[in-house]
Simulated assay, not measured.
Amino acid sequence: MTTPKAPRGATTRERLLRAAAEELVETGELEVAAVSRRAGASAGLPYRYFGTRSGLLIAVLDDFYQRLGDAAALRAYDAPTWAERERRRIRDWVMALYADPLAPLVLGGLVGDAEVATANTRHLHLLIELGARNIARAQRAGELQADRDSEFLAAATLGGTNAMLSVALTRPHRPPAEEIIAELWAVVRGAVGLPSAPAQ
């Protein structure tokens, strides 16, 4: 059985997105002409697919957050307790960002105009909303304190996670992923009020 081919337009769009991500990682900049050269495309082709340089940057951001969602944020974990599920999510979150060359740029504040900043904020708010619903379910189940604001907790844990990973990813010598996972879990556990784990 053969796998159906992606439509030509979708393939071209993916090629341009890949070239844009590579250009950002290598140079820290996004010049549309450089993306076209890297993709082996005509100078006007990115504008046909993305409209503007900002549109291309936003598409790169969207693609980045989709990968993060697939790897961790949108995953349903099969474990009996909230703590076990979220520890697994943190592991997958860290491993995904450690493996993604764009992560240091996105977490460090991708350079762009107000339109790009608005798109990034929209993604962050969606992640906070997902986190708040997740925490609220655990509160209703009696696994977390019910008197805490779930949205504030989600915002605090996401902000702390992104800040810690931004520091880790931009250090000259990255800390081992397992060390970051342990540090992040300690922060999240403390933020939501879970008791400390017993010493091993």
Rank of each mutant, 00 (worst) to 15 (best):
L124W: 06
I180P: 03
L124K: 02
R89M: 06
G108A: 05
T118P: 04
L45T: 07
E183R: 07
L102Q: 03
A138G: 08
R148E: 10
I58N: 06
H125P: 05
L165M: 12
D100N: 09
R67T: 02
L158R: 12
A59C: 06
P195Y: 08
R18C: 05
A182I: 00
E86F: 06
V60N: 00
Q145M: 15
E129M: 05
R87Q: 03
F64A: 07
A177Q: 09
T170N: 14
E115H: 12
P80V: 02
S166E: 13
A72N: 07
A146N: 09
L17W: 01
E86R: 13
R189N: 01
R75N: 02
L127Y: 07
T11H: 01
D92M: 14
R148G: 09
G9Q: 11
L194D: 02
H123Q: 12
A99C: 13
V192H: 04
N134R: 15
A191Q: 14
A168T: 10
E151Y: 09
K5I: 09
H173G: 14
F64M: 05
P176G: 00
T161W: 01
L153Y: 03
W185G: 01
L165P: 00
D78K: 05
L130A: 08
P4I: 12
Q200P: 15
T52I: 10
R13I: 05
G190C: 06
L130Q: 07
G108F: 04
L130S: 06
G28Y: 03
L105T: 03
A154M: 05
P104T: 10
G9S: 15
M164E: 09
T157H: 07
D113E: 11
G44W: 08
E178M: 04
A154D: 07
E23Q: 15
A20C: 04
Y65N: 07
S150I: 06
A103W: 10
R91D: 11
L68T: 08
I90K: 00
A191G: 14
R89D: 01
G131H: 13
R91E: 11
R140L: 04
H123W: 15
A72E: 07
L57P: 09
R148C: 00
R133D: 14
A186P: 15
S150R: 12
L30T: 13
M1G: 14
L184Y: 01
E178I: 07
P176K: 12
L68F: 12
F152Y: 06
A136I: 02
P7A: 09
A132Q: 04
V192E: 03
R174H: 11
R87P: 01
V111G: 10
E26S: 12
P7K: 13
E29C: 04
T12P: 08
A117I: 15
V35M: 11
A186F: 03
M1P: 04
